[in-house]
Design a binder for these strands. Structure first.
Lengths: 169, 169
DNA sequence: AATATAGTTCATTTTGAATTGAACTTTCTT
DNA sequence: AAGAAAGTTCAATTCAAAATGAACTATATT
């Protein structure tokens, strides 16, 4: 009966669900400036009722061993997925944590944190430079630096706020 | 007297200020997934006490005419810079709006808005697919979709909130 | 009207990040 | 201990986004 119409619909529905979730998370990854493959891997795990082996992930997404290995490690580091291993078996099994928080805040901070901290030092150094400017230019420069610094501080408070907002209550 | 030590320090300080601000804004652009050149152009204008011609911008940043033209247009569309023209002169002059709000919210929404709205439709379609799944898989699928949808709604409220936070009081 | 300069457009090129895949290491099984 | 399968690493490749620049249009000057 595996060629029946109903079976086809079911198979299609499952495949579609997986395919679309892969796209959703792949876009999400890109949105936050992370490699698509990270999102794809999470997506395929998120869509699956059962944990999957690396081999199976590679097969479903048609990606390389290297991408799979690196992607799985990164997602695990973010806390977005689990790596399980039952004794008496060689391969690991991978499963998504369904709470999206680790993934989202991981995506967020992997990008924003380094970007923000780098800027902080730079701004500090620039402030020390102002006395070397010609007199007339000093007030203008001071104003400009104040503007960025103000923004920068806000961005600093913004990150934790965003994380709180994105996670559950 | 133009080779004097003080003149050198002053020249260096001004050059440094511009150079570093260019870097700050170029990083910022990248952080939000926009082309570096957008940030560079804004940076050079932000650093300058006076409006600059396109020619001058090209000279200072060492970029192509094409990049300059397109970048300036985009920044103008975001409301991050002005384009002035005095009668009796051929070239326009470009100046940064020192309030960072237009730049920042422009950067934010150019990325997030399309990303989010695309996802919304997709999720809706997926919900309609659930009845076609095998019985046993339906509750799991429903749970998963609820999780993403919940997040997605939050992200929707998040954007305006972020903009409020980044702009003035 | 002719000329010159500013600015735009878009097909081609460049660049840098992501992906690949082959060689390697680790871990399990007999 | 040897063999096999899982997983890692990283130099080389691929690919998409950004930058270039030459041809074009628009606008001002004589």
């Amino acid at each position: 009966m595996s060629g029946s119409k109903n079976a086809d619909i079911v198979a299609t529905a499952e495949a579609t669900l997986q395919r679309e979730l892969v796209v959703v998370f792949s876009n999400l990854a890109e949105l936050f400036g992370n490699p698509r493959s990270l999102g794809e891997i999470y997506g395929v795990l998120f869509a699956s009722e059962h944990p999957l082996s690396m081999e199976e992930i590679i097969r479903r997404l048609n990606i390389s061993k290297g991408s799979a290995s690196q992607g799985l490690r990164q997602l695990e580091e973010l806390g977005a997925i689990f790596r399980e291993k039952e004794d008496g078996t060689r391969s690991h099994l991978y499963a998504a944590r369904l709470e999206l928080k680790p993934l989202l805040s991981g995506f967020l901070s992997k990008r924003l944190v380094p970007g923000l901290s780098g800027g902080a030092e730079r701004l500090k150094r620039l402030n020390d430079l102002i006395p070397d400017l010609p007199r007339g230019a000093q007030p203008g420069a001071r104003l400009r630096l104040q503007r960025i610094t103000k923004w920068h501080k806000r961005a600093g408070t913004f990150l934790p706020l965003a994380q709180k907002l994105l996670q559950g209550e």
